[in-house]
C-alpha cells in the first residue's frame, strides 16, 4: 500500500514536470495552426478551432523566410563541414604529433574556451569591418568555422586511441596526413558524429554572431530573421500564429536530429562541460 502511494506520488511529480516542459511546445504547435482571433481568445487550447494554414501561408508569402532558410542551410552546412575537418586536424596534431609549442598551444585552446562569446560582439564587428568582410557570407561563416571546444573534444578522443594503430601505417611509409586521413579518422567516427551534431545544432541556432556580421536582410539566417520579425511589435497580440509558425519551422531541423541522435547530444553536453 505504501509502495503504491509512493509510486503514485512519483508519477504525479513526473507528469507535472513533463507538462511544464512539453506543454509550451504543444501551445506553440497548436497556435501556429489557429486563426488570429482564436489564438488570442484561447491560447491554452491544444486544438485549433478552426484549423488553418493561413499563418504558414503568410510566413512564406509575406516574410523573407525562404531566404532565411536558404542562408541558414548554407551557413550551417559549410560551418559544420569546416569545423569537423579543421577541429579534427588540430585535435589530432595536439594529441599525436610531436612539435615545438604543442603544450603552449593546447593551453591556449583551453584559455580560448573560457572567453565568453558575449563580450566579443563589438570586437568581432571591428575586425570584420576592418577587413572589409562585414555584410557578406564570409562574415557569417569564417569567424565561426573553427571552435576551441571542438578541438578539445577531438583531442580527448584521439588520446584514447592506442598509439600502435599508426605505427603500421608509418612503417609503410605513409605521411602524417595520409595516416591521419585514412587510418585514424575512420576510427574516430563516434567523435566525428558527435562533433557534427553539436556543430549543426550550434550553428543553426546561432544568433548574436549574425547581429554583428551582417545587416543586409538578404543575408539573414533564420534566427536573425525571426528576431527581426518579433522584436518590432513588443507585447502586442498581433500575428502570433505567423510568428509561432516561423519559430516552429526554425525548431524542426534540430528536433529531428535530436530525436535520431539523442545519445550523441547527451554525450556532447557532458563532454562540453568536462573541460575545467
Amino acid at each position: 500500500m505504501r509502495k503504491l502511494a509512493s509510486t503514485f506520488t512519483g508519477y504525479s511529480i513526473l507528469i507535472f514536470f513533463a507538462l511544464v516542459f512539453i506543454y509550451p511546445f504543444v501551445i506553440q504547435i497548436a497556435n501556429s495552426f489557429k486563426t488570429e482571433p482564436d489564438a488570442a481568445a484561447s491560447p491554452l487550447s491544444p486544438f485549433p478551432n478552426p484549423g488553418t494554414l493561413a499563418g504558414f501561408e503568410r510566413v512564406f508569402s509575406g516574410t523573407d523566410l525562404p531566404i532565411w532558410l536558404g542562408n541558414s542551410l548554407l551557413v550551417t552546412i559549410v560551418v559544420t563541414v569546416g569545423r569537423v575537418f579543421l577541429d579534427s586536424l588540430a585535435g589530432y596534431a595536439l594529441s599525436r604529433l610531436r612539435f615545438r609549442g604543442r603544450a603552449a598551444l593546447f593551453g591556449a585552446v583551453i584559455a580560448v574556451m573560457a572567453v565568453p562569446g558575449v563580450v566579443l560582439f563589438i570586437p568581432k564587428f571591428l575586425v570584420l569591418n576592418q577587413l572589409g568582410m562585414y555584410d557578406s557570407y564570409l562574415a557569417l561563416i569564417l569567424p565561426v568555422i573553427v571552435d576551441a571546444a571542438g578541438v578539445f573534444i577531438m583531442k580527448q578522443f584521439f588520446d584514447s586511441i592506442p598509439a600502435g594503430v599508426e605505427e603500421a601505417a608509418r612503417i609503410d611509409g605513409a605521411g602524417a596526413f595520409r595516416t591521419f586521413w585514412s587510418v585514424v579518422l575512420p576510427m574516430a567516427r563516434p567523435a566525428l558524429i558527435t562533433l557534427t551534431i553539436i556543430s549543426f545544432q550550434g550553428t543553426w541556432n546561432e544568433f548574436p554572431h549574425t547581429l554583428v556580421a551582417v545587416q543586409n536582410p538578404a543575408l539573414f539566417t533564420l534566427p536573425r530573421g525571426l528576431a527581426d520579425l518579433v522584436s518590432g511589435s513588443l507585447g502586442g497580440g498581433t500575428q502570433y500564429p505567423l510568428k509561432l509558425g516561423a519559430a516552429l519551422l526554425a525548431t524542426i531541423p534540430v528536433a529531428v536530429i535530436f530525436v535520431i541522435f539523442q545519445r550523441r547530444f547527451v554525450r556532447g553536453a557532458n563532454e562540453g562541460s568536462d573541460k575545467g
Binding site: P223, L226, A247, A255
Partner: peptide
Amino acid sequence: SAFYFPSVTSSVAISVMFLFIFSN
C-alpha cells in the same frame, strides 16, 4: 529527452514562444 529538449532549441525560437505565453 523531454527535459533536455529546450536546451538544444534555438534561443530565439523559444523566446518567441514565451513572448506568446507571457503576452497580455
